[in-house]
């Protein structure tokens, strides 16, 4: 999906919230959108989801099925959890049989079982947020847009968000997610967009630029071959340490049993 030279303002003579934003999200790709409060994160996400129409520019190749998890779920509605999700599934053109199965699956997965017959208005914020997440994925989306999806969720549900995202990515979908609390460390490999002053800047992908140190234990006999193989795979050997060797000994030939690869 392409965002092509997009500008947006909410009123005809109002200030530009976003101007000249050009960005691309490929299939199977996740993007984390960062920015300060009021920078335009939600606006950008709503443009991508198709909620807002750009005042200038266009959005190209948006997938047919879009799931949008709004920042705050609109709980002020006279429906039960079950009734609401079933209605949203039908609105997303699922058949009655599929609707029942799909709603059941997501209710179980998100731990909404005890709340099935509870009215939306009586749900806690976190539980309502789960309903907001469920309605977005009832029909597997080609584009999933999540606005602060971790807000108010309990520990178990927090773990579930990256799982849901991974499933969408594995099916060839794209994911846009905003986050201001650093929860997106759970999404290694995601690209990162930074929104500021009406512009979107791509930051170095955290998954590739960031490095980690791995300590391995290797039988002494296999050390030369292991080191050679790791080097051949492009890893950077920091040092090799043997049982008798001094800690700073390096090099593939050293009589060492452990090494540090980067």
């Amino acid at each position: 999906m392409w965002l092509e030279d997009i500008g947006l303002r909410y009123h005809r003579r109002g200030p530009w919230v976003l101007r000249q934003v050009t960005a691309r999200v490929a299939a199977g790709e996740a993007v984390v959108v960062r920015g300060r409060n009021g920078a335009g994160k939600s606006t950008l996400l709503q443009l991508a989801a198709g909620v807002l129409r750009p005042s200038r520019g266009r959005v190209l190749d948006r997938p047919a099925v879009v799931g949008w998890v709004p920042e705050r779920f609109p709980a002020d509605q006279p429906f039960t959890v079950d009734g609401y999700l079933a209605a949203m599934a039908r609105i997303a053109s699922l058949s009655p049989a599929t609707t029942e199965r799909t709603v059941q699956r997501w209710v179980d997965r998100l731990g909404l079982g005890p709340f099935r017959t509870v009215r939306l208005a009586q749900l806690s914020k976190g539980t309502a947020q789960k309903v907001g997440l469920a309605q977005a994925v009832l029909r597997p989306p080609g584009l999933l847009v999540l606005d602060e999806p971790w807000e108010g969720l309990d520990a178990a549900a927090r773990e579930l968000v990256p799982q849901v995202i991974d499933e969408v990515l594995a099916d060839g979908g794209s994911v846009l997610v905003s986050d201001h609390r650093g929860e997106t460390v759970r999404l290694p490999g995601a690209r990162e967009w930074s929104v500021a002053d009406g512009a979107v800047v791509e930051r170095a992908p955290s998954g590739e630029a960031a490095v980690a140190v791995v300590e391995l234990e290797v039988p002494v006999g296999q050390l030369p071959t292991t080191v050679a193989r790791l080097r051949a795979e492009g890893h950077h050997i920091l040092r090799v340490r043997g049982p008798g060797a001094p800690p700073e000994a390096t090099g593939p030939g050293a009589e060492s049993a452990s090494e540090v690869a980067r």
Binding site: G50, V51, W68, Q77, M88, I91
Partner: peptide
């Protein structure tokens, strides 16, 4: 009667 955000959810689901 429908909250604004719910109207937008419907819009995302079925198109404007």
């Amino acid at each position: 009667v429908e909250p604004d955000v719910q109207r937008r959810l419907a819009l995302v689901a079925v198109g404007p």
